[in-house]
Computed example of a mutant assay.
Amino acid sequence: MYALIVYESMFGNTKQIAEAVAEGLATAMRTEVLEVGSAPASVEEDVGLLVVGGPTHAFGMSRASTRQSAAQQGRVLSQGQGVREWLATVQTPSARLASAAFDTRIAKPRMPGSAARGVAKRLRRLGLALAAPAESFYVTGTQGPLVAGEMERARQWGEGLGSSFLIPAS
């Protein structure tokens, strides 16, 4: 069993968080990180934990229009489908697959919306159990950078996810 992390990232902040989560998870289990454009159409049977994350756009998961808007602001990493579209079509092996969701969002007080909550809802619709509540990591502005300490917090969150599985790394 291993963990699969699938992320969508516009300006690189969500990618950095995905990599930090993977670093934490790797203390307990083998971990693979994939940008959503490279993610498989079907999750393999030997995946024990599926972690999905993306940026919060317009109070939720990105859409084609919000990705286009991001691209007008500069070069973006995820240029094809987003996690919304991937989750709408991905095949999962069984309900025994655990999952977790995260997002990046602007660190402003009372800013509503969260891509992570939308991802978590879709993971539950796929019949997957959530291993942890949806988690948000914060950026200072639309293009970032990450708020100080968020990389370490992401690593710790990943470590906590991994410790609940106790699957030896290989």
Results as ranks from 00 to 15, higher is better:
Trp157Lys: 02
Arg105Ser: 02
Ala169Gly: 13
Ser94Trp: 14
Glu35Ile: 04
Leu34Trp: 01
Ala39His: 13
Arg124Val: 14
Val6Thr: 03
Gln79Tyr: 05
Arg122His: 04
Val47Trp: 07
His57Trp: 06
Val43Asp: 02
Glu135Ala: 15
Val139Ile: 15
Leu77Cys: 08
Ala18Ile: 07
Thr142Glu: 10
Arg153Met: 08
Val21Arg: 05
Tyr138Trp: 14
Arg96Met: 07
Ser9Phe: 13
Leu50Thr: 13
Ala115Gln: 01
Arg96Trp: 05
Thr104Tyr: 00
Pro168Asn: 04
Ile5Val: 15
Pro93Ile: 15
Val83Tyr: 02
Leu123Tyr: 00
Glu32Ser: 00
Val6Ser: 10
Val90Ser: 14
Ala41Arg: 06
Thr14Pro: 10
Gln16Met: 08
Leu130Thr: 09
Leu87Pro: 13
Thr31Arg: 01
Gln16Glu: 11
Leu161Ile: 05
Val36Ile: 02
Gln72Thr: 09
Glu150Leu: 11
Ala98Thr: 07
Ala26Leu: 11
Ala3Lys: 07
Thr92Pro: 12
Lys108Met: 06
Ala129Ser: 13
Phe11Lys: 04
Pro145Ser: 03
Val119Asp: 05
Glu159Gln: 13
Thr92Phe: 01
Phe102Arg: 05
Val33Asp: 08
Ser42Thr: 15
Gly118Phe: 04
Leu166His: 15
Lys108Ala: 10
Asp46Cys: 09
Ala107Leu: 04
Arg155Met: 11
Ser42Phe: 14
Pro40Tyr: 01
Ala71Gly: 03
Gln91Tyr: 01
Met151Ser: 13
Thr142Met: 03
Gln156Pro: 05
Ala120Gln: 13
Ala120Asn: 12
Val36Ala: 14
Ser42Tyr: 10
Met1Asn: 06
Gln72Cys: 05
Gly53Tyr: 01
Glu45Ala: 11
Ala95Thr: 05
Gly149His: 13
Phe137Cys: 06
Phe59Gly: 06
Ala41Asp: 10
Pro133Glu: 08
Tyr2Lys: 09
Val6Ala: 02
Gly113Phe: 02
Arg153Val: 05
Glu44Asp: 08
Ile106Gly: 10
Met1Cys: 13
Gly127Lys: 02
Val47Thr: 01
Lys15Ala: 03
Pro55Gln: 04
Leu97Phe: 03
Tyr138Arg: 02
Val76Glu: 11
Ser62Val: 00
Thr142Asp: 09
Ala88Asp: 15
